Amino acid sequence: MKKHLYIIALLSCLLSACDPKPAVFNLQTKNFGPNAVVSIQSSENSETLKAENITNGNQSFKINIPKEGYAILKTQDGEHTTEYYFYLDKGNYTGVLDGKDINTYPLKNVPNKESEEFIDFYRLKNSMSKTLFDSLAIAEHELDVATKENIVEKAQIADRWREKKNQSELENIEAFAKKYPKSTATIFLLNRFGRADSETRKYLSIFKSLDEEVQESKKGKKLLAEIMQANQMMAGSKMPNIEGETPDGKEFDLSVLKKVNLVICWVAYSGKSRKNNQVLVDLYEKYKNKDVEFIGVSFDKNKDSWEKIIKADKLTWPQYSDLLGAKSPNAKNLSNFNATYFFLADKNGTVLSNNDLSLDFVDSEISKHLAGRE
C-alpha cells in the first residue's frame, strides 16, 4: 500500500513540475490597419511562438507551453514595426495595444515580477523621453512629405533626432539599472540596444552599477567580454596586432603604416565586400600618395579564392590573412567578428576612429585625420 502511495506522490510531483498552464494574452486592440499582425517571439533565438491578425477589438490568444524567459511582443502594421519587451511565463497578460499610441507600453497586468520591471522601465522611458518622441515624430513626418528641394535638409534633421533618441534609450537603461541593480533585465536591454562598440564607456559604467550576482551570471560575463573587446578598439587605444601574412608570405609590421591608415576587415565571398571594393579602389587612388595607407584583413579560409578576388577587384594595397576564417584572432580582436568592418589607425597603430564607421563616412574621416582635425 505504501508503495502505491509513493508512486502516486511521485506522479503528482512530476505532473506539477510539467504544469501545462498556458500564457494567456487578453488585449484590447485598436487603430491598426486591416492586415496588421501581433506576434510573440523568444528573445533567445527570435523564434515566433505565436502570431495573430489584429482584430481591433477584444482579442485573446495563448501559448500552451510557454518557454520561460525574455520575450518580445511585436506588431507589424504595413511598413511600421513596433517591439515591446516582457518576461514570458505561464499566467495572464492583459493590456491595451493601440496603433496610434505606440510609445505607451501595452501590458498593464502581468503574472511575474520580471514583467512588472518592464512596465516600470517603459514608464521611466516615457517620462524621460516624451518630448523627444514628439519631436522625432514631427521630423519623420516632415521627411515623409519632403520635396526634392528640402529632402536632404529634412533627412539630416530626422537623423539628428534619431541619434538623440538613441542617447535617450541608453539613459533610460541607466536609470532602470540604478533602480533595479539586482535585475538581469539590464543585461537583456543592453544586448538588445546593441551599441557596445560605439557606447563602450557608458555600457561599462552601467554594467558596473549592477549587483555582483548579475555581473557574474553567464549572460553578464558574456556581455562584459563584449564590452572589454570593444574597449580595446576605442579611439586612443593601441590596435591589436594583425595576424597572418600577405599572399607572398610577408607578416604584418607596423612599418607599413603611414600617417592615416584605413583597416578593412572583409571576406572574399561576401557580395557586400565586393561592392565595397569598387568604392575603395577609387578612394585608394585619391589618397595613396597623401601619406595614407589601406590595410586589408581577410577572414577567409581558402587562399586561392582570397588571392583570386584580390586580383579580380584590383586591390593594390597590403592584404593580410591567417586563413582561419571566423576562428581567426583577427576576427575577434579587430572587428568582434564583423565583416565588413572599418577603422582608422595612425602610424603607431593607435586607433583614431572606429565607432560605427561606415563606408559612407570613410572619405571624410580620412580627410579629417589627415588634416589633423579632431
Rank of each mutant, 00 (worst) to 15 (best):
E142M: 10
Y287T: 02
Y341R: 08
S115H: 06
K90P: 05
G325P: 10
E163G: 01
K21C: 07
P247I: 03
P22S: 06
T200M: 01
I227D: 07
N289A: 12
K202G: 00
V152N: 13
G99S: 01
I151Q: 13
K314P: 05
Q278G: 02
D101E: 08
K347P: 00
D211Q: 11
D291H: 08
F342C: 09
G57I: 02
E153Y: 13
K286A: 04
A345P: 04
T55L: 11
N348Y: 11
D356P: 03
T29Q: 12
N112D: 07
A345E: 05
V38R: 10
W317I: 02
S305E: 15
L204M: 13
F337N: 14
F176E: 03
K178I: 02
V263M: 06
K368W: 04
K222I: 04
R162S: 07
L170V: 07
S198Y: 08
P66I: 12
L136H: 09
K272D: 11
P181W: 02
E117F: 01
T200D: 03
A17T: 07
N64F: 02
H141M: 05
L132D: 02
M1V: 10
L334Y: 08
P240I: 04
V292L: 03
A177G: 07
K286H: 10
T184M: 06
V297S: 09
K250P: 03
L359S: 11
N166K: 14
N241T: 14
Y203K: 00
N354F: 02
V110K: 11
D282S: 14
K368C: 03
N103W: 10
V260K: 09
P318E: 06
N289R: 07
I151D: 10
V110F: 07
D144V: 04
P247E: 02
I309D: 10
L107H: 07
K332S: 13
A230D: 03
I295M: 06
L88E: 05
E216N: 15
F193P: 02
I138R: 13
D291A: 07
F361A: 12
I173Q: 10
Y122G: 11
Y203F: 09
S127N: 06
C265H: 03
Y6N: 08
N333G: 02
N355G: 04
